[in-house]
Design a protein around this nucleic acid. Structure first.
Lengths: 226, 226
DNA sequence: TACAGTCGAACGAACGTTCGAACGAACCTC
DNA sequence: GAGGTTCGTTCGAACGTTCGTTCGACTGTA
């Protein structure tokens, strides 16, 4: 049916990869500007003509690289999600202390969030606009990320090997509250007031871990107190 | 310029009022259905034809009661904000304990949020779509609500009369984290899993106050532990 | 007679998407 | 090396649809 645009980018596999071919680099260029525009105007509020103007690629040219506006959003969201999850895996490796692992999770999320705030707003804010196959894929990745976090929090609340694990309602609420405080950042963050990712992560980690455990378990945290 | 729709609804004053006149009741009917549609499809994704279909009022009829799509959103957001703030004022009256006052704030916010989740999603999610005069009014109300919360949190962290008050960066982060965890709820809340507003408020209040103070100051909290 | 309420029909503009033609580099055949 | 063919790339122009909004006419009640 759609003969010309049937071409598949070389990073179609699950792992995010470097843009290597000319085609990939050009698509990447379009995705970066699309992220800007979606960030500023929202997905529904942004038109393909806006994306064309921002990227310098003609309207028809956009469709040579991506078959629909929906798919542009999908590619942006999937790339952000897969990247943040891969970094998390790398950082968790070799750390066994449950509290330290939660600290790593929050630090990783916030660092990536602030360094890629536009993409992360698009990921957070346009959470439920994709329907059909694209939407299901994104939801599946999100669920995996959520479950990973619940696992970390459970390990803190009652160590592995204990029988009564598997995501209590308290863990659920705590994890979703944590995601809320982190993903809401795009609505208020000001680098001149709020410091860098490390400072924000330190404050939020302290808030969350004390909230989870009382004062237990936060002994290695430096909570800055002006 | 716009002769017919220049009519002003009787609750144009700052206080939200009961719909009394026929005109007000009809406008209220439209606003309720508009809230539903904005909740489901987002502001930009919803068309005036969607609102017409949902409310049973013809396309032209909508413009007899409200002069633009923007103003519909503005009225929905303003009403939600003013109502939640008025209830907060009523509930705070006569309570002097700083911790108790924070507890009241969270309980009030969550109770209204869950009871009016559609309107509150529209308020949270379409936070920055209104430009010009409407946008400024909403931002002004939001700022007032935020400042009220910072005041309550400051009272907990260092009692009134002490010199070093006035919104430290720690207070700012804590309050914005609190808003994050509360306003994110619309993305995940399931009444069959997460219980009612009182249970959720109890959990989140515990999380927040312990996070803010360590285990100090939470002695009157019943934290349900299944 | 007057006027608030209501709506079908239409306005011009903007939407996502498609079409067909052009370009240039790479490849084949002689 | 010249001439012809392919193919990835690019874009102006248009497709049909839907958008927010307006107009003019018609109702029913006072």
């Amino acid at each position: 049916m759609r003969a010309p645009s049937a071409r598949v980018p070389s990073n179609a596999a699950a792992q995010p990869a470097q843009a290597d071919s000319r085609f990939d680099r050009r698509l990447q260029h379009i995705l970066e500007h699309a992220t800007d525009v979606f960030y500023q105007k929202g997905f529904e509020g942004a038109s393909m003509r806006d994306l064309s103007r921002a990227s310098g690629v003609s309207l028809a040219g956009l469709y040579h690289y991506c078959e629909s506006k929906d798919k542009l959003l999908f590619l942006i969201q999937r790339h952000a999600f897969l990247t943040i999850m891969q970094r998390l895996r790398e950082r968790l490796e070799g750390h066994d202390d449950p509290v330290e692992r939660v600290r790593i999770f929050i630090g990783n999320h916030l660092e990536y969030f602030l360094a890629n705030m536009k993409a992360m707003k698009v990921l957070s804010h346009e959470d439920d606009v994709l329907k059909g196959e694209y939407g299901e894929q994104i939801q599946a990745i999100k669920r995996e990320y959520y479950r990973a976090c619940v696992g970390l929090v459970d390990d803190v609340q009652c160590p592995p090997g204990n029988g009564s694990r598997g995501g209590s309602r308290d863990s659920r609420t705590a994890v979703l509250a944590l995601f809320g405080m982190m993903n809401w950042i795009y609505t208020w963050y000001n680098p001149r007031i709020d410091g860098d990712a490390a400072e924000l992560a330190s404050q939020m980690t302290g808030l969350f871990l004390r909230g989870l455990l009382g004062t237990r378990g936060t002994h290695t945290t430096r909570v800055s107190k002006s």
